[in-house]
Design a protein around this nucleic acid. Structure first.
Lengths: 225, 225
DNA sequence: GCAGTTAGTGTCATTTCCACCTTAAGGAGC
DNA sequence: GCTCCTTAAGGTGGAAATGACACTAACTGC
C-alpha cells in the first residue's frame, strides 16, 4: 500500500519561456531568442530544457517563476504572464509532473546582464534543438501566444527601454511577427491606441531627421487574459 | 523535520466552470447558468464551490475535469478548455492547493440530463453567491474569457444542437453578451466566417416563414489559444 | 384574402485598414 | 553655402469591414 501511495504522487513544477530580442547569427535581423538550461540529471540528462523548478509550498506561482529565473539565468523579466499548464500523464518518463508554464519578456539592457554559464545558453526561438520532456511543444505554444498577443496588446513595450522611438517599437513588432510593417500605418495605430505618449524630446545624433521619443502611457486598466 | 515535510506539500486539484443557457427566473431572457456543488467538509463546509477534485496520478488534466463533472453533476460537456491555474499561497486556509481550472459549455439537451441532488444546484452566472476559496474570482475570469472568445471564435456552436437556425445561434451570442445583435449583420458575419453550412432543409411548424437549418462546417484547423 | 410574424436580402453611410506619395529635418560630402 | 541621402512624419485614396435600417419573402391564423 505504501508503494501505491508513492505512485499516486503528482509533483508540481513551474517553468518559464523567456523571450528576448537579439540579432540573428546569420541574417543579422533581430529575432526572438530564449535561454535554455542543460539538464544535469536524469531524465533527459544533458538535454536542453526550459528554466524551471519545483513549486515550493510558501511561494506563489509567479514568484516561483521569478525565483528560478533569477537563480538559473540571473534574469528579472519586465513582463511575466501565465501561459498554460501541461499535465499529460506520460510527459515525464518515470514520475508524474504537472508543469505550470509562464512566459516572459526581457528588455535588451536586462538581457545583457544574463549569467553566462556552461549550463545556460541562448537559442534562436525558431531554431531550438530537441528539448527535454514536451518542452518543444511548450515553446511553440509560447511563440504562438506572443505573436497573437502582440497584435492586440501593448506588450511590445516590455521589449523596449523607458524612452524609445516609434521606429524601435515597430522594430519589435517586425521582429516578433517576422515581417515588415508600414511605418505610417504603424504610427497611426499606436498613437490611436493611447498606450504611448510623447516625452517632448527628440533623439539626436542620428545623421538624419531626429525622431521623437515616447514612453509608455500610464494605463488606466489592463486586460489580463 | 517530518512535520516540515508535510507543510512543504502542495496538492493539485482540477475544477471546472460549466456554462449552460437557461431562461432567467425573473426576466425570462436566456442567460448563462453554472452548476455549483455544496462542500460537505471543511474548509468552507456548507458553501457552494466549483465542481472539482484532486488530480489522480494516472489521469490527464482534461480527463480529470471530465470525470469529476460526470461524477458530481452527470454532465458531459461539448466543449472543454483550460482556463487558468490558480495558486496563491493563501487561497486555501490550512493546506496549499493549486487548482487547474477548466471551463466548459454544455448543450441544452445535455444540460437537461443533469443529476439533481441537494448538493448540486444551478445558479445564474452573474448572480452566484459567495463561494468557497477564490472561486468567485475564478467564475469572473471564466465569464470574461467566454464573452471575449465568443466574439472571435465559433464556440457558440457548442451551445446549440447539431442542426440549428441562425436565429438560435444569434440567441446564444445575445445571451452571452447580454445585448441584441442585428439579425442581418449577424447572418452575414457568420456565413462569411465559413464555420457553418446549410443542411438544405428548413425548420417547419413555426407559424411563420420557415428558417433554414445549418450545421457546423467541418473545420480544417482550429486555433487553440 | 388579410394581418401578423419572422426569415432573408439590399442599400448606404461610416469607419477601419492598407498601400503609397509627399513633405520635413537632420547629417555628410563637396 | 549647396546638393544628396536617409529617415521621420503626415496626407491621400481605394478596398474592405461594420452598423443602422429599409424592403421583400414565406409561412400561419383568422
Amino acid at each position: 500500500m505504501s508503494s501505491s501511495v508513492v505512485t499516486e504522487q503528482v509533483s508540481l513544477a513551474v517553468s518559464t519561456v523567456v523571450f528576448a530580442l537579439r540579432p540573428h547569427p546569420r541574417t543579422g535581423e533581430t529575432t526572438l531568442w530564449l535561454p535554455l538550461v542543460r539538464r544535469i540529471r536524469e531524465p533527459y540528462e544533458g538535454r536542453w530544457a526550459l528554466p524551471g523548478g519545483p513549486l515550493k509550498a510558501h511561494q506563489d506561482l509567479a514568484a516561483s517563476a521569478r525565483e528560478t529565473l533569477a537563480d538559473t539565468t540571473g534574469l528579472e523579466p519586465a513582463h511575466l504572464e501565465q501561459l498554460y499548464s501541461f499535465g499529460a500523464v506520460d510527459r515525464s518518463p518515470a514520475d508524474r509532473v504537472v508543469s505550470i508554464v509562464y512566459w516572459a519578456l526581457v528588455r535588451p539592457d536586462e538581457d545583457a546582464r544574463t549569467t553566462e554559464t556552461p549550463n545556460v545558453e541562448w537559442f534562436v526561438a525558431d531554431e531550438v534543438p530537441q528539448l527535454a520532456f514536451d518542452h518543444n511543444e511548450i515553446v511553440r505554444h509560447a511563440l504562438d501566444r506572443l505573436r497573437a498577443k502582440i497584435t492586440y496588446s501593448p506588450i511590445a513595450l516590455a521589449f523596449v527601454p523607458d524612452e524609445f522611438t516609434l521606429a524601435e517599437l515597430r522594430g519589435v513588432h517586425e521582429a516578433v511577427l517576422g515581417r515588415c510593417l508600414d511605418p505610417a500605418n504603424f504610427r497611426r495605430q499606436v498613437l490611436a491606441g493611447g498606450t504611448v505618449e510623447p516625452t517632448g524630446t527628440h533623439l539626436t545624433g542620428t545623421s538624419h531627421r531626429p525622431p521623437a521619443l515616447y514612453r509608455a502611457a500610464p494605463r488606466e486598466q489592463e486586460k489580463s487574459r
